[in-house]
Amino acid sequence: MADVDTVDTIEIHVRVNGTSRRETVRPRLTLADFLRVNCGLTGTHLGCEHGVCGACTVLLDGEAVRACLVFAVQANDAEVTTVEGLTGPDGQLSTVQAAFREHHGLQCGFCTPGFVVSVTAFLAENPKPTDEEIREALTGNLCRCTGYQGIVNAVRAAADTAGTAVTEGPA
């Protein structure tokens, strides 16, 4: 049987974690599946596939979005950062990633990429959050293991570490 989708394919150009990619995709391919299947970046997880759980969160032109609610064709000419793209050049953990490890912000790890990407975007826009703002920012990601307290602590620590780094920098 002919694949109904093959009649319609579109060439897109996306920069993923700094690398330019040109791919021909079907319109109904979500950005999440594009990243996992076409790019082999399986750090982006899929839980609900309808926008509720946050496991698929990536940065699209710097903003945190649900990769399950964006079609890959809509990311044409955009810049995408996944959890794989947050580490330093030698693979060292980012401040947020290190804080999650240090403060028990994960157990099974399924939700973790979505949390880490969301928190990275949140702290970039809001570097000195109150505890209440942290809790509000975390409402868009679901975790079935940790009970959230470790995650809240990790975000607090990441914010404070980044804050200290700034204040201790050269005057």
């Binding site: 946050g54 945190a64 979005v65 649900r66 964006v70 949140f122 409402t139 868009g140």
Partner: peptide
């Protein structure tokens, strides 16, 4: 606006 979903929803 802040009542609409989450910030990852409002970005789109």
């Amino acid at each position: 606006t802040p009542f609409i979903g989450h910030f990852q929803i409002r970005s789109r």
